[in-house]
Design a binder for these strands. Structure first.
Length: 428
DNA sequence: TCTGGGGTCCTAGGACCC
DNA sequence: TCTGGGGTCCTAGGACCC
């Protein structure tokens, strides 16, 4: 057996931890650009505010009902998540942290599993005041379905265990097929066209037919519904495969200079993550998009295979700027841009000796020291972001505040060397 | 007027190489 | 003039997840 522990309305619940006066009151949390609703308390759900809806569409409803609105605070959510996960890890030696607000626990060999699940539920509520739902079942997909039912029905009081076949079958009859893990909107529509509307219907389909109509992913879902685990609880965290940084502008951007500035910011953010993980990247994608709600959504990207693996911000920015200049079209109105780093390798010293430009270890050391200083300044000052001067015009380090979108800010300050704690080399 | 961001996985076609 | 196929890389897009 395994358990899925999922925090209820996670972001909204986190905000409430520090605002206990909002207990029982409607709360919503907005996405990065304050664009969409990404989390709602139960009271906000009851008011009929949908998930993912653009803020401006429900603004009136929110004001009339005095809903408390929060901009997202991912530092807080990350911190709360760590606290929840460390509690969960005390309950099983094999825990897979699946996302910021949920984790799978391997409960193989445990006794009184249902009571154990209730204890997990109780402990988390008590220690960090975050409400969670616990679904227990033989497979991940079933545990997800159990979790869905826990949230739907207060009668379960936070915990549901699905054990024998009859119990599983009757539970699945209450789960719409689109609520299953791995069945999204498109597949749900397609399945309902064949009369498959509940998880129970899907559990009982003909496998040969399923293979003809759908991919192997569908077979996996069905097997898991039948109680055969296809997905193990994986406690070893996998090395990430990509790092993305992107933002919508919230307005139309037409100038290459402005896009360049934004791309430089994205590279800086992504490279910080890269260095945190001790990795180097050897491929880079730059993309720019027109507003996706217009009739003809334009999207252009450029993939660059770098000549050597690197974690050097300025090197990556210069490649990214070259790529951007290639795909940029004068006269188009862009709504979003972003970058993606790929093809990672462990950052180590040997790589530099492979390339003539990197023969001098002194120069490399100096660059690394400087970048670490930049990372630490960013860490200390939270919302301040330091990055290499945009557009490659000035060979100086600059600081700018990152507000809602990298493109909103165009005011620059030189970084006081005292704050940086290091004097950048002249040729940098 | 205003419509998120960070991920993984898959597919498909064209360019280019052998 | 006619004729091939396999492999990789790049671009674009779409499904799904949180």
């Amino acid at each position: 057996m395994l358990a899925l522990v999922d925090c209820n309305n996670f972001f909204a619940s986190c905000e409430r931890v520090f605002r206990p006066d909002l207990e029982g009151k409607p709360i919503v949390v907005l996405s990065n650009n304050d664009g969409c609703i990404v989390s709602r308390s139960n009271e906000a759900k009851a008011l009929g505010i949908p998930m993912g809806v653009p803020y401006f569409k429900v603004k009136d409803k929110i004001e009339i009902n005095r809903v408390h609105v929060f901009s997202s605070n991912f530092l807080l959510y990350g911190d709360m998540s760590n606290r929840v996960m460390s509690i969960i890890e005390q309950f099983s030696p094999n825990v897979e942290v699946y996302s910021i607000d949920e984790a799978f626990l391997d409960l193989t060999g445990m006794k009184n599993i249902l009571e154990y699940g209730r204890e997990i539920h109780r402990t988390i509520k008590q220690w960090v005041t975050i409400p969670v739902s616990v679904g227990i079942a033989p497979t991940k997909t079933l545990a997800k379905a159990a979790n869905y039912l826990v949230k739907k029905n207060a009668g379960h009081r936070g915990v549901l265990m699905l054990e024998d076949e009859r119990q599983i079958a009757s539970a699945l009859a209450e789960v719409p097929v689109g609520e299953l893990w791995g069945i999204g909107r498109r597949l749900a529509v397609s399945l309902s066209g064949y009369g498959i509307r509940t998880a129970y219907d899907l559990q009982n389909i003909d496998m040969q037919w399923a293979r003809q109509q759908y991919s192997v992913m569908m077979l996996r879902v069905v097997e898991e519904l039948r109680g055969t685990p296809c997905l193990a609880v994986e406690s070893e965290s996998q090395q990430r495969k990509s790092i993305i940084s992107s933002r919508s502008f919230g307005r139309k951007v037409t100038a290459l200079a402005e896009l360049s500035e934004s791309v430089a910011t994205h590279i800086t953010r992504a490279v910080e993550k890269l260095r945190e993980d001790g990795l180097c990247t050897s491929a880079l994608v730059v993309y720019i998009k027109a507003n996706r709600f217009t009739a003809e959504p334009v999207s252009h990207s450029k993939y660059i295979h770098l000549p050597y693996p690197t974690d050097d911000t300025s090197v990556l920015i210069s490649y990214a700027h070259a790529a951007l200049a290639e795909i940029f079209q004068d006269g188009l109105r862009y709504g979003k841009c972003g970058i993606c780093l790929l093809n990672f390798s462990q950052s180590s010293q040997f790589q530099y000796s492979l390339f003539p430009a990197y023969q001098s270890e002194d120069v490399m050391q100096e660059r690394r020291t400087l970048m670490k200083a930049i990372d630490s300044v960013n860490g200390k000052w939270g919302k301040r972001t330091v990055y290499f001067a945009a557009c490659g015009i000035q060979q100086k380090w600059h600081m700018k505040s990152e507000s809602r979108s990298p493109c909103y800010t165009t005011e620059w300050d030189d970084i006081p060397e005292a704050k940086l704690g290091i004097t950048p080399a002249k040729d940098f």
